[in-house]
Design a protein around this nucleic acid. Sequence first.
DNA 1: GACAACTCAGACAGTCTGTCTTAGTCTGCC
DNA 2: GGCAGACTAAGACAGACTGTCTGAGTTGTC
Lengths: 141, 141
Amino acid sequence: MMSEANTPPLPDSHATDTELSVLEALWRFGESTIRALTDELYPGGGAARYATVQKLLERLEAKGFVGRRRAGRVGLFRATVDRGALIRGRLQATADRLCGGALSPLLTQLVEAADARALSADDIASLRSLVDRLSDSEEAP
Amino acid sequence: MMSEANTPPLPDSHATDTELSVLEALWRFGESTIRALTDELYPGGGAARYATVQKLLERLEAKGFVGRRRAGRVGLFRATVDRGALIRGRLQATADRLCGGALSPLLTQLVEAADARALSADDIASLRSLVDRLSDSEEAP
DNA sequence: GACAACTCAGACAGTCTGTCTTAGTCTGCC
DNA sequence: GGCAGACTAAGACAGACTGTCTGAGTTGTC
């Protein structure tokens, strides 16, 4: 009972690398027109590149990563997910495919992967506070 | 200087869901023949399914996830990566695409995602020992 | 020698992705 | 009024990837 739907929904679709570059631009510049995005991603790009960006936005919208509104006759596009949501979506997808949905194996492997490379003291501290929080809610349900 | 090559190489290719089911079978049963894997994955499957498994193994081998040796005239296939390596590979891929390769943003998001849902007491305990281990190696380099 | 099982190579359709073309619509300006 | 320029919408296209399957050759058994 409960313990669901209290976190915003995670993206279930996959954003392509190219689609991701459009999202990155939207994150950097906020709500933008196709024209502005095209100029950013393909400087000097003509009508063809413009249409490419248009199609990428259309697909991103279908996947729920992007929303649009109209300002006069032109469309304004904005990202409807932030980078963190995208990351969490991919993490969850990895967990679903490789760990039956469980997240803790990911934590284990993440720490292992980071072992050689440095994890900052801040990272470790945030991990520790997670463990403390989890322990608390475990003892006092 | 250094801090490289002391961890085994991470898979750089992507294993499909279907390919993954073959890997899962190899993890469960260890070194196996195509026949045994086919019987496991497609019970009662005929020559067609056999060939499907064969092709999946061929592609897994090309991607470096599977190795083969010959026992007499039949081939014996084994996984050359374990589940953890696959997980770490996907984590690194996510980090590369979404965080410029840095792993700590993944940690942050993972903690956030794990916060909401229930982790088992075992998970929490193993997490705690993980944190303790990290803190130790942090204090005493 | 016939048969069964295995291997190897490749065909095939369906899907996904990035790219581009075309046609239609609206704008403001001369 | 009408025209050039910019925007939208719809879809065509090739290349890659995936899961599936067929066929031709090999090898060992009875």
